[in-house]
């Protein structure tokens, strides 16, 4: 078993795609690094923390991008964002079976904050344009830094999200909320609280993540294969249905103080036991109870 959580972005791509099929665009040898970091006397990476390219998944052509959390928390700068936008636009030309986004990001890179924010906005528009053109975008989220900030919005713009329990998904990270609003609002060092608020199991129970897998690259691969035939649907009917689901969530859970209250309201008998369960046992325990 290969831990997805522990692997680097390059290793994740190698483990996810069919062996030996990955071809990188603008590889490190092209040295398209961030000039803005160097200007602030901060080390830059040859790939600006994102690997983009093409390969095969179960024999089918896909485009894929992987963010490296070990470099600046996977944050989006000008080059990083532009590489992802270019890949999404390429997908409109090439029409692969899907685009895979191996997300791991704290959001906008502060050293180039304006370029990063605009870059995230361009990623959002490019994802929506690609889905409108009928190519599905599948998100994999199980890295050490989670998926936050603008990339948290991007992830929810896509067709499907695969998470492990270790994966985290949100907008403002627990540390940001604690720093701004105080430890009473969100204690970022309370790992159990963080995991049940933004972790994969809660996201799966709310219906935000489509698959919850073990922290195993092979499990992520299989889940991505199973989602390859997803058909993008941005019709009025589909968005009206999503609107009703999101409205229902506010009505049903809007007064809940904690994920445990939500899980309880979903009819799960012993919600406090859920964080302890392995992925298989967890899926069995919550079958038919997801929002």
């Amino acid at each position: 078993m290969n831990s997805y959580y522990e692997a680097s972005a390059r290793e994740r791509l190698r483990l996810l795609l069919d062996p030996g099929t990955f071809h990188e665009f603008l590889p490190p040898s092209e040295r398209v690094a961030s000039p803005h970091l160097l200007q602030l006397d901060t080390p830059a990476a040859f790939d600006d923390g994102i690997i983009v390219g093409k390969g095969l998944l179960d024999g089918r052509a896909v485009l894929a991008a992987a963010q490296e959390g070990g470099f600046m928390g996977g944050a989006v700068g000008e080059v990083h964002g532009a590489k992802l936008v270019g890949l999404l636009e390429r997908a409109r030309d090439e029409r692969p079976a899907a685009v895979l986004l191996l997300v791991e990001s704290g959001g906008v890179r502060l050293h180039e904050a304006n370029a990063g924010l605009i870059g995230v906005s361009e990623i959002m528009r490019a994802v929506l344009a690609l889905r409108s053109a009928g190519v599905p975008v599948i998100v994999l989220d199980g890295g050490q830094f989670g998926c936050f900030g603008g990339m948290g919005i991007v992830a929810r713009l896509c067709d499907a999200i695969v998470m492990s329990e270790e994966g985290r998904l949100g907008l403002s990270g627990p540390e940001v909320i604690e720093t701004t609003c105080g430890v009473e609002e969100f204690d970022s060092r309370d790992r159990a609280l963080v995991w049940r608020t933004v972790g994969g199991k809660h996201r799966y129970l709310l219906g935000e993540a489509d698959a919850l897998v073990a922290d195993d690259a092979a499990a992520f691969r299989q889940a991505a294969i199973d989602l390859l035939d997803t058909k993008p649907d941005l019709s009025l009917e589909a968005l009206t249905a999503e609107h009703e689901r999101l409205g229902g969530r506010l009505e049903r859970f809007g007064a809940c103080r904690d994920a445990l209250d939500i899980w309880s309201a979903l009819g799960i008998a012993a919600p406090e036991k859920l964080p302890l369960l392995e992925a298989d046992a967890f899926r069995a325990a919550v079958a038919g109870k997801r929002a």
Partner: peptide
């Protein structure tokens, strides 16, 4: 965050 604010923003988008 508990309710998935990023998903509400994505829905608007």
């Amino acid at each position: 965050e508990l309710l998935g604010i990023n998903g509400y923003m994505a829905h608007l988008a």
